[in-house]
Design a protein around this nucleic acid. Structure first.
Lengths: 270, 270
DNA sequence: CGGATTCTTGAAGTCGCTCAACGAACGTGG
DNA sequence: CCACGTTCGTTGAGCGACTTCAAGAATCCG
């Protein structure tokens, strides 16, 4: 039994569209990417409102009717599903400029729950209206397809590390990917704050919170990173990358430091 | 080191468009789903050719330029990625009526490799043309969005079992899902042939081939299914479903039959 | 029929989990 | 500001679920 599902009413602020997409710092990675001025105007008109979420508040829940897509304006969210045993499985973290809800288009209802990891603000995009807009703005449509496609790729990558990588590799990859995402947003790729709990990280990576803790400790002891609570600094990216790519033989979590086994069991393909 | 990547030139038959989508048995689950006659005609014109693949032949490979989507006409394919260590990770199996290549739209190049599990035939759909068609056929566009969305859901489900389910549950779920897919195509949900090797199953499910073998043996011993090579019959679906949903406490693979532990560690959420 | 691949079965080993206890950070209110 | 409970994170010991390693048995296929 992991976290109980946090159910909270959504705080809806007055529809203060005080900022337009055209002037949003994220417009080059968000949905209206690549639109001309007229297009951006059309798009602005359908984004009816921006919503503020408190930490722990749900943006949407499993079973909700699908009406909107949501773009993160600031803050961080996670999406999770409940597996048949009732356990939670985190299926993704979302940061500013990213779009949530794409998985609900297929069935007109949400199959995952999205919750704010910190106080956040999101832009609500009525999908029916967006759909109409595609006819007018083929470039936006194309971008939308790319967006969905990338979401598929992202999930495939997750399958990859869940299915065929050691815990150490998974964590290394996770940290590097986080860094890349921040870099793409103009922040440091090596120094950032984890917005999610160890529990969420572990859940996402298919391991326990204890394993996360121990792995972080080991990375720290090796001098690869510095950590203070949720503040992380990747000091030795090369080594972390080596582990992530399996170049360095990954070590198990409960390493008995005395005997250095020559591990060869997951041989590298030709 | 898993399977080496099978590189083979693609056998291109003369463009015999001997069958139109309108008369295809799969048209209600494939891309042109829900099109009227005129729409189906337009669509038919852009599906330039049908291609035959021999077992083991690649439809596309990692790194290939993205030009087409592919719909399975008959046969079965698998898609896999190579993880940073060089190992293969199967990210999906595809049966008639399903569409491959959606993950390549985002970057204009394929990040996975698709290979035929048996002699198969696929319909090649030039994406640029399809894109143009969306303007004319908004219903098709909508269906396409649903298709991509479902692919995201499918991957999320995979993450779920890879990340938070026991081996026994994963296999049970896999078999049930296969059955459902066949049922949706008018075949038996309980009696079918596995088109993929144990190795592929294990890889997809994040376990070894030996574990797959042992689990199948156990299901057989419990009388839940009958197996002869790749021929499977789900005899006791209720029990398999109970295991898949975690209702029955899943048993470990190397079960010591003498001591029946009362497992309570993965408690069911409220 | 051979030879190669695929699958099964057994025994031993290990990666990461469970269980448990402690410590640190964070709010909240006094 | 400091007690206070609560959530979150760390650390240790033991063990369990699955893997690895190693043969052997079927099955496929030319």
């Amino acid at each position: 039994m992991k976290n109980a599902i946090h159910i909270a009413s959504v705080t809806t602020l007055p529809n203060r569209v005080q900022t337009k997409c055209a002037t949003c710092a994220l417009n080059n990675m968000c949905l209206p990417q690549g639109l001309d001025e007229a297009g951006a105007g059309s798009f602005d008109r359908i984004v009816v409102r921006r919503r503020r979420l408190e930490r722990g508040e749900n943006l949407f829940s499993t079973g909700d009717d699908f009406k909107n897509l949501y773009a993160v304006r600031f803050g961080h969210l996670k999406a999770f599903r409940i597996n048949p045993s009732g356990d939670q499985q985190v299926v993704g973290f979302y940061m500013p400029g990213e779009v949530l809800g794409l998985d609900a288009i297929g069935t007109d209802s949400h199959h995952s729950t999205a919750v704010a990891l910190e106080d956040s603000e999101i832009c609500e995009i009525p999908f029916a209206r967006l759909d109409e807009l595609f006819g007018e703005l083929p470039q936006m449509q194309r971008h939308f397809h790319r967006l969905m496609s990338k979401e598929i790729m992202r999930e495939q990558s997750a399958m990859m590390f869940l299915g065929s990588m050691m815990a150490e590799q998974r964590l290394a990859l996770f940290l590097l990917n986080l860094g890349k995402s921040y870099a793409a947003r103009g922040y440091s790729a090596t120094s950032f704050q984890l917005r999610m709990s160890r529990e969420d990280i572990g859940n996402y990576l298919g391991m326990t919170i204890e394993s996360v803790s121990r792995l972080i400790l080991r990375f720290k002891e090796k001098g690869w990173l510095r950590v203070a609570n949720r503040e992380v600094e990747l000091v030795d990216r090369a080594s972390i990358e080596a582990v992530a790519s399996g170049m360095a033989n990954a070590e198990p979590i409960a390493s008995r430091p005395r005997q250095t086994r020559a591990r060869a069991h997951m041989a590298v393909a030709a």
